[in-house]
Every structure is written in structure tokens, then in C-alpha cells.
Design a protein around this nucleic acid. Structure first.
Length: 226
DNA sequence: GCGACAG
DNA sequence: ATCTTGTCGC
């Protein structure tokens, strides 16, 4: 099956991909030296996507490499199908890196998705790089009230009345700010995902990786090609 | 039919 | 995501 064009094809592919997602910690996670933040911005009236990748050294979090790529948008934004809109340009940006990172922090959900295949799962499966979903808001699932201190969290549970499953976690990375929704993307467990997100977060709500990537993806005007 | 709904 | 000034609070 190649890249989907319709929502039906996209949903079918997600269901198929979800079966390949691994929630166990990959052995490579014992030696993580480079962590990357991935973010996508839109320009030209939302018709052009701009992906930015910021690779930071770990655990010191110093910017070591960055890449930028742009591509025409070919898929609309539909809740639950975000990856089909953003992954093409993200793969372009990844190909520009001299050295692939050991871990990816993606903007959006991982397992906490209707079909258990958020953008972090999809990207993790395509690259085979351990990936974590770091979302600023909730897509699915519910959770109990979260404490006010940094590091406090509550499991994000599926809404089903009988088959309750933990999809991820609602995490407080900073007091007085909104929560972050963390879920495994691929080749990593929820516990390890939470640990990495906290290690990558310092003075702000968002991880340093995400902040660098976001800064790159939406600061400079779109590069012109004449 | 009525809400909910990553970026 | 993106459009945007001032403003409340530590």
C-alpha cells in the first residue's frame, strides 16, 4: 500500500501499522546521545509545509544539528490523520541530517490515538527510530486531575467502559501551565517516555527539543525558489 | 442526532 | 497550524 489519498485508505493503513508498534524499550535506549525535536509549520496560506528537525546532545541538550525542508501540502488536516499531512515533509528533513538521532520527540500523539497510531507511531515505524508522542492537547482518552508540581502525572485511559487500557499520560512539566500529553510512539515504554520528556524539559513547559524545532519551523520566512 | 476533535 | 496587543502575575 503506497501513500493514502482518501480517509478510508489512511485509516486502514493506521490499523495495519498499529499492529507493528512496539511498547517495549528498545535496547538502543541504553545509550542515547542525540535526541531530536520534530515540528512542522505551514506557509503560503497553508499550502506549503515546512518541517524542522533540531538534534540536541543528550543529556546536556545542546543544539548539534538542524535541518529544514519544505513540500507542497497534499493532505488536509483531519483529527486522527495528522501524520498523512506532516510525515512526507518530515522525512525530507530527516534525509538532510548527517547523522540520525537516537530518539525522536514528535509534536502530537503516539499511542493515544483512535486507532493507536498517532504521528509518533507512524514516524517511528517508518524510520525505526525510537519515538515519543508529545502533544500539547488531548485527542482521545481521559484522566484524573493532575497535581500542580513538575513531574506529576496521571494515566490517560481509553474511554471504553470495560476494556480500559492505558494509552499514555497527562504530564505536568511546569507549575501553572497546561498539561502535556505523552504517549509511546515506537520502541519505547510509557515510563521511559515520561523520563525522557522530563529530562528534556528545563525552564519551560515544552521540551528543549520541541522548542528549538518550533523556532526553526516558524521563524524565517519561507525560502524562495526563483 | 449531538458533541469531540493532535497540528 | 495561523491571525495578533495588551495585560495579568511571579
Amino acid at each position: 500500500m503506497d501513500w493514502p489519498t482518501t480517509t478510508a485508505e489512511a485509516q486502514a493503513l493506521q490499523t495495519q501499522l498499529a499492529a507493528q508498534v512496539l511498547t517495549q524499550d528498545d535496547l538502543a535506549l541504553v545509550d542515547v546521545n542525540y535526541v531530536a525535536g520534530v515540528d512542522v509549520g505551514f506557509v503560503a496560506g497553508n499550502r506549503v509545509a515546512r518541517a524542522a528537525i533540531a538534534v540536541l546532545s543528550y543529556p546536556d541538550l545542546q543544539l548539534r544539528e538542524q535541518s529544514l525542508a519544505t513540500l507542497p501540502v497534499t493532505f488536509p488536516y483531519i483529527p486522527g490523520l495528522l501524520s498523512f499531512r506532516e510525515i512526507p515533509v518530515i522525512l525530507c528533513a530527516l534525509n538532510l541530517l548527517q547523522r540520525l538521532p537516537d530518539l525522536l520527540l514528535c509534536d502530537g500523539q503516539g499511542l493515544a490515538h483512535p486507532r493507536r497510531c498517532g504521528i509518533a507511531c507512524h514516524l517511528g515505524l517508518l524510520t525505526q527510530i525510537p519515538a515519543i508522542g508529545v502533544a500539547k492537547s488531548r485527542l482521545v482518552g481521559h484522566h484524573a486531575p493532575v497535581g500542580e508540581n513538575r513531574g506529576d502525572w496521571q494515566p490517560l485511559m481509553d474511554k471504553s467502559e470495560d476494556k480500559s487500557e492505558t494509552l499514555g499520560a497527562a504530564l505536568r512539566t511546569r507549575p501553572g501551565t497546561n498539561l502535556l500529553y505523552i504517549s509511546p510512539g515506537h520502541r519505547i515504554s510509557l515510563e521511559t517516555s515520561l523520563a525522557y520528556v522530563l529530562h528534556c524539559t528545563r525552564r519551560y513547559r515544552l521540551p528543549e527539543t520541541t522548542r528549538f524545532a518550533h523556532k526553526l519551523a516558524s521563524s524565517p520566512p519561507p525560502p524562495l525558489t526563483l
